[in-house]
């Protein structure tokens, strides 16, 4: 085992770096640029049972040190992911992938998770109960401890693979929600999804995003994410995957010192398509600089 390797829910990762869902498609745009097998794994585009176009455009806005998106889970639907995306991915990615799943009802979450649970290449299922851009689903499950626990328990009962629940930062207290997921059988927690925000165009005097609000990501959210990862990791015994504004090897180390077992990288991939490759390359030197021998011993 290398000095960068970590164990995420019983599966060894060569390193803790995981491109976050929604910033890495189903992998092959990036496979054209570098060998994506250097990654720990990656979390693929949020998948729902039915195909979705998502929200009307514009659905991207910019702000200081970050961006807003209101994409709204555009994806080809679970069946097409299985029949088209995964076979295509298999040609360029030899590792287990993290399947990211979203839904609009508990039944839909369960059914989509069950479909992806049956796929050999899927190592973990990251259940997104925190998308801020869809109505009547997504985040409404992740801002209520009882609803989050219900999704967790029902998905767990229908699947074999490790279930990681992806939580929303748009709550007054993340701890009871994370604990409820742990008690309901979750194998891990990942956080944070994006923070709800908005921009107004002074020329048109209207919101920049057609959806009015969107999810804030990028370096602007890093301290918020770090604080919530810290709070959650102290409160639960299951592994925590930290994310939110991570853009460098140093950010990865900070996240791990806050209690993260592995670290997802999101918006950074959109600005620098080589961001994850660069972070993995820079990790050993950053560890040397701060006297960290192995990432497993960081805490």
């Amino acid at each position: 085992m290398g000095r960068l390797s970590v164990d995420l829910c019983g599966i060894e990762l060569d390193n803790p770096v995981i491109p976050a869902s929604g910033t890495f498609g189903y992998g092959y745009e990036f496979a054209d640029l570098y060998d994506i097998n250097i990654l720990g794994t990656f979390s693929f585009k949020g998948t729902t049972k039915e195909p979705r176009f998502g929200n009307p455009t514009p659905r991207i806005a910019e702000c200081a040190s970050g961006m807003l998106n209101s994409v709204g889970l555009q994806n080809p639907g679970a069946e097409k992911v299985v029949s088209e995306e995964l076979p295509r991915l298999k040609k360029v990615f030899g590792k287990k992938v993290m399947a990211n799943v979203s839904g609009f009802s508990v039944e839909e979450y369960v059914e989509t998770c069950r479909i992806l649970d049956g796929q050999e290449q899927v190592g973990w299922i990251e259940v997104n109960v925190s998308c801020p851009n869809v109505h009547g689903g997504g985040m409404s499950f992740g801002t209520d401890a009882r609803a989050a626990a219900e999704v967790t328990a029902k998905v767990k009962a229908a699947t074999e693979k490790p279930i990681i629940i992806k939580l929303s930062p748009n709550v007054t207290d993340i701890v009871p929600i994370a604990r409820a997921c742990e008690d309901a059988g979750a194998d891990g927690i990942s956080l944070i999804n994006t923070l709800l925000g908005m921009r107004i165009d002074l020329k048109t005097r209207k919101p920049v995003l057609k959806n009015v609000t969107g999810g804030l990501s990028g370096p602007a959210v890093f301290p918020v994410a770090l604080r919530m990862v810290y709070q959650t990791a102290k409160a639960v015994k299951i592994p925590v995957v930290g994310m939110g504004g991570v853009a460098s090897a140093e950010d990865v180390l900070e996240m791990m010192l806050a209690g993260a077992t592995a670290v997802e990288v999101g918006a950074a991939n959109l600005v620098n398509p080589y961001a994850c490759r660069d972070i993995i390359r820079d990790l050993p030197a950053a560890m040397d600089k701060y006297g960290i021998k192995t990432l497993k011993e960081i805490r």
Partner: peptide, 27 residues
């Protein structure tokens, strides 16, 4: 022309519907 996140097909920010399916303006 569309507001884009990445410009290379990763974020789905600039999608549009067409007769032959969804397309990313950037890709």
């Amino acid at each position: 022309e569309r507001r884009m996140g990445c410009g290379f097909g990763a974020c789905m920010g600039c999608s549009c519907k067409t007769v032959t399916g969804n397309k990313r303006i950037c890709k």
